Simulated scan of single mutants.
Amino acid sequence: MDVASSATAAFRTTFGADPAGLWAAPGRVNLIGEHTDYNAGYVLPFALPQQVVVAAAPGDGPGWTVCSDLAPEAVTFAEPAPGTVEGWAAYVAGVVWALREAGHAVPPARIALASDVPVGAGVSSSAALESAVLTALADLGGLDLPVPRRPALAQRAENGYVGAPTGIMDQSASLRCEAGRALFLDCRSLEVEQIPFDLAAEGLAVLVVDSNTPHRHVDGEYGARRASCEAAAGILGVPALRDVPTGDLARALARLDDGVMRRRVRHIVTENQRVLDTVGLLRAGRIREIGPLLTASHASMRDDFEITVDRVDVAVEAALAAGAYGARMTGGGFGGCVLALIDADAAGATTAAIERAYRTRSFAPPTAWSATPGPGARRL
């Protein structure tokens, strides 16, 4: 059963009727630009074919009832104040709360969820859920809510309600990506540019490898990295680390006494430049040439930002040894996925090489698939 059918079936089972419609929002992989979003920098994600599908209809009472094809019981809430709804349903309640906080009259609704976005893999399953729910509620309520304004509301749900200190990239990708393109996002101005990323035309593929090492954002590590970046920006007298020019990096680092903070700053400043360099190559149609930038990004995340783990490092090394043009971890870190830019006919061989490397180290097997840039949130 596909995801849309699963959502429809869950709705019928829980509510005894057909939904008014189906809405979908995708997970994402970030081609390059990690932890730059909350530093007001640049990112370059694209949407995955995997998605969260919402089957929804107007409510028959004053509140909201949500169910999932993976949860045994529905959850009902009437006043979604922070802390009153927990678990997976908190992401739904958070969207309702964020919309109401922004002054929107959110319609009561019955909602059923289904998803094939891997959870805990660093491909934004939570942002996909938030984006799908927000899109459904905006349509059901006829809300005056232009798409460019939606990512900030979905991010508000995750930051202010769920408690995860994520930047705006994930929700922007889920809501604003286009098929066949990567989304170049300026996280300060929120301006976007759709960058051509036609892998098939060049005989290429992006292999996404789930290391099956779940990561967590609602924990101390992500927050610690963010706090360190903000503290460094304060010491350097800039609004955000995005404002440290690459040419001034050495001078900026010399002003920081803490070695850990210096490494964090070096990653952010050089990562922003790598995003800009990658965009320049893609605009010129030179997709293969972004490979070394991807690999340099991984080395920076490993050595300076210190957010990789053994399983993702091994996957990157094995992919490169198998002939990938470049490879890097994608996502917030401490687990999750790796992406590798490869020839389209090399997916099987590259996957096999990573599987062999995992067996040698007695790691649980990884899961891999080729990703094609897909569309953002929409009504089906």
Rank of each mutant, 00 (worst) to 15 (best):
F334M: 13
R150S: 08
P107W: 11
T372M: 10
N272E: 10
R251D: 15
D304K: 12
T76L: 09
G220L: 13
L207E: 09
D18I: 02
G203S: 07
V218K: 13
V316F: 04
G83Q: 11
P26N: 12
A154M: 12
V147L: 15
A318I: 04
A55F: 03
V265P: 03
S115W: 03
A284T: 05
G103V: 02
R361P: 01
I235G: 05
D345E: 15
P82Y: 08
G21C: 11
L320W: 03
A114K: 00
A78P: 00
D304P: 00
E306Q: 15
R100Y: 09
V279Q: 01
R251M: 10
A324K: 02
D313L: 11
Y42L: 14
F184V: 03
E79A: 15
A136L: 07
A371W: 01
V208G: 00
V309K: 12
A250W: 01
A4L: 08
R359H: 11
S5Q: 15
L31P: 03
G285E: 04
R181G: 00
L183A: 10
E202S: 14
G21W: 03
A9T: 13
P80N: 12
T350C: 13
A368K: 09
D210F: 12
E158Q: 06
D144S: 14
E79H: 14
G259C: 01
A74C: 00
G87E: 06
R328T: 11
G83T: 09
Y38C: 10
V123I: 14
D170A: 07
E317W: 10
T372A: 15
L199R: 06
A55H: 04
V43C: 13
L294N: 02
I268N: 11
M169E: 01
T246Y: 10
R356M: 04
G103Q: 08
A173V: 01
G220K: 05
A9E: 13
L153I: 14
D170G: 07
A179K: 14
N30M: 05
A17M: 08
W88H: 04
V192G: 02
A347F: 09
A296N: 13
L341G: 08
A353G: 03
R12M: 10
